[in-house]
Design a protein around this nucleic acid. Structure first.
Lengths: 211, 211
DNA sequence: GTCTATACGCAGATAGAC
DNA sequence: GTCTATCTGCGTATAGAC
């Protein structure tokens, strides 16, 4: 990616980059309201005041536009709010991070849908989603290993750590989906119950998670 | 539904019913391979050796066909394997039930995708999925209440029970998705870790799940 | 009663004018 | 770079064959 975006760009790139951001913003709005399949390029183009052919020109395909939107989602959520937090505190912050998603129902809906659709190896975003989950799980595992090294939790094998971070991720994904299906779902309380119980188990090193 | 299907049906219904089953089977194959959006009526029709118009005639719309497929999935999975099991044993059986899904990757892919897509209130299967989750959660809650009544677990409020069954469901859904994205995921071990820890917590009635 | 042939509108994608 | 056709394939609806 050549977009180093120095403070002062002389030539034609500036408008191209800003245009791109506008298009992604329009895509987010439309996808968030109508989903990926339901949000047509023509609708997004109309929203942004361009032709749908122009969207293809910028992003190569609808998939390319989708990927750009997902990267924007990543930038907005994962990076924000959880920087400078590490070890067990990272897990303790998860309930409020999830709760914050409730302000952005459309984006959660979009990401949940894409993650599931992309489970098919044939889906255009399959590689992106697989990579994203791998990165996410690795980050969680790092924090858990850090807690282990610091002596905050009892001994735990790397295989156990893998299972633990997968279960945390599953809880977040699953509760998110249930909230989408039934907004009366108490997201923060559910996630909090899970995280607190998991941490308690890690600290005491009880047998129910040793195999 | 007028399909009482007496042992001997005189007239034209027989072929109609059997045809319907053939079409659903073809739809399952195609949906399982290409997903819902990617599985066109024309492809399903070709697979079944009929015209795509005939599919519409039988099921009214693509949504109708989808609903028939999902009901078939329900019939194959939830009903089978868990009948005659109750109380805590119901939860103990979940790891092997989930592990059994690994023989049927296509259907798990389909159901995961539809559940996510249908999170949008505008999706044709939204009502079906919402109802299905509500029924599922209610069933799990019944078993947990039964264990409570039998004294197998410590006291637990109905609100706590709701959270617990949502977390179990989230673990199943989330681990299933992760297995789809990364087949090296140890489904049985992950689910087993979750269920055993949850049951241990219910039995001891520790403070980490009381609020 | 079932099924097919056919048509309509919309989707994503491409080619070429300006 | 962006637009205006235009292509192909989709879900859907209907009329009519058998």
């Amino acid at each position: 990616m050549p977009e180093k975006t120095r403070a002062t760009v002389r030539g034609p790139y500036r408008t191209g980059i800003r245009r791109r951001e506008q298009l992604v913003a329009a895509a987010i709005e439309v996808f968030a309201e109508h989903g990926y399949a339901g949000g047509s390029l023509r609708a997004i183009a109309e929203h942004a005041g361009v032709s749908h052919a122009s969207l293809i020109q910028h992003f190569g395909s609808k998939e390319g536009l989708l990927t750009a939107v997902l990267e924007e989602w990543d930038r907005r959520t994962v990076q924000d709010g959880l920087a400078d937090i590490s070890g067990l505190d990272y897990f303790r912050r998860l309930p409020e991070v999830m709760a914050a998603h409730q302000d952005n129902r459309g984006l959660l809906e979009l990401f949940t849908t894409i993650a599931a659709e992309a489970s098919s190896p044939l889906h255009p975003a399959h590689g992106f989603i697989v990579r994203r989950y791998a990165t996410n799980l690795a980050t969680l595992a790092d924090h858990l290993r850090q807690a282990r090294a610091a002596g905050d939790i009892a001994a735990m094998s790397d295989a156990q750590i893998d299972i633990e971070v997968r279960l945390v991720t599953a809880a977040l994904d699953g509760i998110g989906l249930q909230w989408l299906l039934d907004p009366s779902t108490d997201v923060a309380a559910s996630v909090s119950t899970y995280v607190e119980r998991a941490i308690a188990s890690w600290v005491s090193g009880r047998g129910d998670d040793r195999r």
